[in-house]
């Protein structure tokens, strides 16, 4: 069969592999854009409907364009109803974020050196990802009742939220430490820094972007958590609980306005973080030389 490659009849449509590869990338690009639309369009419909006119409903077609529902949100009692849960959710998310950062950094730091049972430890931590939220919340509620502990948004719900955000933060920090060069710490040690100083002056500033990412995870996972909060928050609910309750009672474009406001707040937070990242990476690269 020598020379078989050369004897194969020429394809009628000959296409250079580079051209084909370019076509493939166009196709994949189209699929990606489709996916992004799929992800964002539902939210966009909500944004749109929140700007509906006074007589606007909660479905299309849109009835006029106004800021009516935002004004109503600002004035009306409904917003007052939402204010306390919003504050609770915000504080809970902050607390969850801070705790997740501390625990994730410590846990990932521990994983840097292998220890007895480190494999089991790794999988046990990640198990939090797999466990269905509603069962975790319910089980935790049963457990606390058994122990005679009154559930509250800032005690039992807080613990459950941290257990939910921790696997995400842990994975993030593992990835960060994977790329971290331990010789930087060793260099600091040989230059006279003790372990604490080396961590503070070398490790911490370098892993900081990852830490910010972990903090974001901790915040956003807690802020919109419903299933795990349902049974553990006690009498004073969080924002997701309040919204779900309101959805049960009456659906108005006001809720869309709330959704839009909170989403915009999240986007602003993400934008600020990205900007901080950008500033930081520019600082690491250094100022351009004149």
């Amino acid at each position: 069969m020598l020379g078989a490659r050369g004897q194969r009849p020429r394809a009628r449509l000959t296409m250079h592999w580079k051209t084909r590869s370019r076509l493939t990338s166009w196709l994949l690009g189209a699929v990606t854009i489709g996916f992004l639309l799929f992800q964002w369009l539902p939210m966009f419909t909500m944004f749109l409907l929140s700007f509906a006119g006074e007589n606007g409903g909660t479905t299309f077609p849109m009835n006029g364009v106004s800021l009516h529902w935002y004004r109503k949100l600002w004035d009306a009692d409904l917003f007052d109803d939402f204010k306390p849960p919003m504050l609770r959710s915000f504080l809970l998310a902050l607390g969850c974020s801070a705790t997740t950062v501390v625990l994730s950094v410590s846990a990932a730091q521990a994983m840097r050196g292998r220890f007895l049972g480190s494999g089991a430890y790794f999988y046990l931590l990640l198990l939090g990802l797999m466990a269905p939220g509603i069962l975790v919340g319910f089980g935790f509620a049963i457990l606390t009742r058994l122990l005679g502990i009154e559930g509250a948004w800032n005690t039992t719900a807080y613990v459950v939220h941290v257990s939910w955000a921790l696997p995400f933060g842990f994975m993030t920090m593992l990835a960060v430490f994977n790329r971290f060069d331990p010789r930087l710490e060793e260099a600091a040690l040989t230059l006279g820094a003790n372990r604490i100083t080396a961590f503070r002056r070398i490790t911490w500033p370098i892993i900081l972007p990852g830490v910010i990412g972990t903090a974001l995870f901790g915040f956003s996972l807690s802020y919109d958590e419903y299933a795990r909060t349902l049974f553990t928050a006690g009498s004073d609910g969080t924002l997701p609980l309040a919204i779900m309750a309101q959805l049960d009672r009456q659906l108005t474009p006001e809720l869309y306005a709330i959704g839009t406001v909170t989403t915009v707040m999240s986007l602003v937070a993400i934008f600020l973080c990205t900007f901080a990242f950008w500033l930081r990476s520019r600082a690491l690269r250094g100022r351009p030389t004149p």
């Binding site: 260099a187 040989t190 230059l191």
Partner: peptide, 17 residues
């Protein structure tokens, strides 16, 4: 940090920040 030494690493291990 309590030894009278210093060390130079192969890839220099300069602090990037």
């Amino acid at each position: 940090w309590e030894r009278d030494i210093a060390m130079m690493f192969q890839d220099f291990a300069l602090f990037p920040h």
